[in-house]
């Protein structure tokens, strides 16, 4: 054989590459959701935000020729959707889960509507950082082409951890999420803190969309998100609202996505539907293992999902 075949080594390589390629959108969405939920509100609408981000990134990159403008546009479009969610979900007697579902439909509908002209053209993709030296096998070289967005997400995770633990603003967000009454007594505006947290979280989710359409797989189609926004919400729960744990969980999910195709390509013939379902089985498994009827989840913000509207 003229070309070097990797054989079984292809499987761990594909999973390793998959963690970096496929994990990036998970990472951004879950970090965004983590920030949002820390302030005590749930934003299920990130699935719609992801699609909107993917569409705006692709569209702007195509129209201006600069992928970085696309990333910025994705973040901004996310923040706008976040502002809508932030305002709506904080009205009296409005349930944030219900608003989130409405935002999924709104965000994806808007993205499909505005995205029609961008399905066909090819937009400028984000440049990748090549970590491999030229002596390595081409497969390894391809796996080591890392997106700057992945590195950005890698940096944001510990930064957010530090932000929650050690800064005044982080304390405000935690206070609003855990005990709105106490936060109000401190003189913190619950509305503003939640609004900003949701907008910032949606900004990150929008960038996650940009990673989908401008890095991997690098196209804009209506099926591009395939439920990743919702999975990232579940991912935050078993990451225990901890940004660093979000990072590991995202990598795990990204890797699990590439398992099915990788195993088939080395000749594992049976059970590919099972392998394709790997991320979902993993979610279920972790949820079952970590849930207990005797205690509530450690790390869950106290006011999460309750209608704890401080009357301002």
């Amino acid at each position: 054989m003229a070309t070097e075949a990797l054989g079984w080594w292809g499987v761990p390589l594909a999973i390793a590459a998959g963690t970096m390629r496929g994990g990036t959108p998970f990472l951004f969405v879950s970090l965004g959701e983590c920030l949002t939920e820390k302030s005590g509100k749930i934003n299920l609408g990130l699935e719609g935000t992801l699609l909107m981000g993917a569409m705006s990134a692709y569209g702007v990159s195509y129209l201006t020729g600069s992928p970085w403008f696309g990333v910025l546009a994705a973040g901004l479009s996310g923040a706008v959707l976040g502002a809508i969610h932030g305002w709506l979900s904080q009205q009296p007697r409005v349930n944030d889960v219900a608003v989130g579902i409405a935002m999924i439909i709104f965000g994806s509908g808007l993205a499909f509507f505005l995205g029609k002209p961008f399905i066909q053209p090819s937009a400028t993709q984000l440049p990748t950082i090549n970590l491999a030296s030229s002596g390595m096998a081409p497969a390894v070289q391809a796996a080591l082409q890392i997106s700057p967005l992945f590195l950005l997400g890698l940096a944001i995770a510990p930064l957010m951890q530090w932000f929650f633990r050690s800064t005044r603003w982080g304390l405000f967000i935690r206070a609003v999420g855990d005990s709105p009454e106490a936060a109000r007594a401190m003189g913190v505006s619950i509305f503003k803190v939640r609004m900003l947290s949701i907008m910032a979280g949606s900004f990150l989710a929008g960038i996650g969309g940009a990673a989908l359409s401008l890095y991997y797989p690098g196209v804009w189609t209506e099926r591009i998100s395939s439920g990743q926004g919702l999975m990232a919400v579940a991912l935050v729960i078993f990451a225990r609202w901890n940004p660093m744990a979000c990072l590991w969980a995202s990598l795990l999910f990204g890797g699990a996505q590439s398992l099915g195709p990788a195993l088939q390509s080395v000749g594992i013939r049976e059970g590919y539907y099972l392998f394709n379902a790997a991320p979902y089985i993993l979610t279920l498994f972790i949820m079952v293992v970590t849930c207990s009827p005797r205690r509530s989840l450690v790390g869950a913000p106290g006011a999460l999902g309750t209608d704890s509207q401080g009357r301002a």
Binding site: A14, T221, S226, S258, A262, S265
Partner: peptide, 16 residues
């Protein structure tokens, strides 16, 4: 299945 299709091509390219 956009991501699986991309993964499939990448895996096959890895396999030569």
């Amino acid at each position: 299945e956009p991501i699986k299709e991309a993964e499939a091509v990448n895996s096959m390219a890895d396999q030569g």
